[in-house]
């Protein structure tokens, strides 16, 4: 078990090991839902919530069900099932309390289920041998890091409505390029705090 404190893992997951800008996980909804700051903020919050809850649940499921029953080979299916069930809950919640956001996110809300960042966080937690507290720090940090990245991209894309992007680069292409520059700028934090 690694001995890094949960606090360090939390900071690292936001800045130095941002799950989106260094591992490039969860790109599909990142590109698709970053047209507007409000929408991206909504999706970002949903991802933070789902990520921290599923890492916690998956930690418990993995260490108290899968390991004792030696069913580790089922971890992918079980993790995805947990995530899917949880996202269903969130979806019902959002539909009930913020119909506007529900329609703005559209298909991308249920698609959080297959957001690779969420599954990625659970798998990293297993690979890196985090303890429960560390997992909480990592889940929260990874979620916040993802949300920060999508909100930043949304801000830039909103500003870019005044830009004059050449035809072949419009839409997804320029968003990918901007993401690249974002990742370049985040490289500046490299070495500040380190997790594997």
């Amino acid at each position: 078990m690694s001995e890094t404190s949960a606090w360090v893992i939390f900071i690292a997951a936001i800045f130095t090991n941002n799950i989106l800008l260094t591992n490039f996980l969860g790109m599909c909804s990142f590109i698709a839902c970053s047209g507007q700051i409000k929408t991206s903020l909504g999706l970002g919050t949903a991802v933070i919530f789902v990520m921290i809850m599923t890492t916690m649940i998956n930690y418990v499921v993995y260490h108290f069900v899968l390991v004792p029953l030696s069913l580790i080979h089922l971890q992918f299916i079980v993790f995805i099932a947990v995530i899917a069930a949880f996202v269903q809950l969130v979806e019902m919640f959002v539909e009930r309390f913020s119909p506007k956001l529900y329609f703005a996110l559209g298909i991308f809300l249920p698609l959080i289920t297959v957001n690779c960042a969420i599954l990625g966080a659970s798998l990293f937690m297993i690979i890196r041998n985090y303890s429960f507290i560390q997992s909480v720090g990592f889940g929260l940090g990874a979620g916040i890091g993802w949300a920060v990245a999508i909100v930043l991209l949304a801000g830039l894309r909103q500003k870019m409505t005044y830009s004059h992007v050449p035809k072949p680069f419009q839409g997804v292409a320029i968003a990918m390029i901007v993401t690249g520059v974002l990742a370049m700028a985040f490289m500046g934090f490299a070495g500040m705090v380190a997790i594997q």
Binding site: G155, L156, K159, L182, A185, G188
Partner: peptide
């Protein structure tokens, strides 16, 4: 360099 680039990134927000 990195700091100002990050500044540019957060400016619209």
């Amino acid at each position: 360099t990195f700091a100002i680039l990050l500044g540019n990134i957060v400016a619209p927000i």
